[in-house]
Design a protein around this nucleic acid. Sequence first.
DNA 1: AGAAGGACCAGTGGTCCGTA
DNA 2: AGAAGGACCAGTGGTCCGTA
Lengths: 267, 267
Amino acid sequence: MVKNGKVGLSEEPVQQQEREAAGSGGGGGTWEVVAAADGRGRMKQRRRKKAAEREKRGASAEEDDETEELGQEDEENINEGGGGGVSERQREHPFIVTEPGEVARGKKNGLDYLFHLYEQCRDFLIQVQNIAKERGEKCPTKVTNQVFRYAKKAGASYINKPKMRHYVHCYALHCLDEDGSNALRRAFKERGENVGAWRQACYKPLVAIAARQGWDIDAIFNAHPRLAIWYVPTKLRQLCHSERSNAAAAASSSVSGGGVADHLPHF
Amino acid sequence: MVKNGKVGLSEEPVQQQEREAAGSGGGGGTWEVVAAADGRGRMKQRRRKKAAEREKRGASAEEDDETEELGQEDEENINEGGGGGVSERQREHPFIVTEPGEVARGKKNGLDYLFHLYEQCRDFLIQVQNIAKERGEKCPTKVTNQVFRYAKKAGASYINKPKMRHYVHCYALHCLDEDGSNALRRAFKERGENVGAWRQACYKPLVAIAARQGWDIDAIFNAHPRLAIWYVPTKLRQLCHSERSNAAAAASSSVSGGGVADHLPHF
DNA sequence: AGAAGGACCAGTGGTCCGTA
DNA sequence: AGAAGGACCAGTGGTCCGTA
């Protein structure tokens, strides 16, 4: 492999991974097949557009053909129930707040599955890194667009950038304080809160962790091997920054009785 | 400063730096003034274009005004000699191969000056990093476009990306083996070689260094504090990669008598 | 209403090539 | 000819908003 002239994509182990992941899925292995089929359609479209752009200016050719082996399932399973038209848009089932260990039922996905997707992305990154090293190309240290593209080509079409970025801080809490994360999940499940509410609630304990560690959220991410490969989400960074300002202002006014406009303690 | 609503640019210390740098310049302090004037013209142009693009779609406003204090010199010094038209294009004097410590004469710049530019970029990066930290924004670890833009705003219009990227590996040799670098400069000066030839010659000793250290050129750059802020140049990376392949093939064929198509030893 | 993700956009890394 | 650098381009990080 790798030297076979194709894109260096080794499908087999990846596909296996995908199968493993299915355990937590909604329709007992249905959705990921459907999603893969959908993904392929989109990919062709994208490639067509890309090729068109190439023609506009002197093509920088190199690497574009793909290992077209994702097949196996073809026409089948395009539609899930017995319902509507032939080519309905398929999406992943929405997440619900589940306790640790709990598998979501019905057309839902649980939070263990969500976190599992982050681990899968890590595996894809490691593969991309290995390929880059073998080829002597520059080697990503983070989950980049390249990694998402690789995941898609490898058949994991249920992984996409907006989704992964959306929940990064939830995964961060899971990494940095699993007990706290678990407690939060149980509390929000009990209260019947939706995923959005749970997601919002994940910020606060993270900011508290940052407060205890000198407010350097980048350092906190980088110190954790599974978290270091993810970009710090903008909103989390902003929250840490403004909380630090608040804390500094409070501390300084409690000492000096001065106004909020005082300078920050260090920097 | 920093909280003044402007771009957070503190001009003063930067301008001072610029003055320092002038020592190695060609026209005894002339060129950098000229270059600054030229730079301002271009900047206005760029801003105009940017503003036009904004109007096309719902402006993401935020941060665009500039501390317009670069002035001081205005109409004066647009032209260097007494020569041609009013607004001739000005460029930096070309580099020549100089020995360590030697100041270039005539309309030339020497290699100490070249390396000094890398140190200046480092200073600009550090300033950009400090501003980012104060604001709680993401903090560059490398000399990025943002840093080049900052340098230009700060009046160092003689710094530009193509130039700095062009000679990065020469600076790398200077950092990693100053004695070797100095010897190479003396040899090429003596032989009367031009800058291009010297530049080309800098690759080989770097590849030799990489060979001694397991071929990991990224690790070599990252291990050196002044070098770590520069991207590894593509060509240097490629040279290391293909030399490693050659070395591996030679080693394996000398042992097994096998063909060049053998696999690499590790990976 | 709540949520998933295609697709867009501003600004990046990289360097070509029209310029002097 | 040898060299400096404006300006372009493909692909990035980031996330909005049309979709289901």
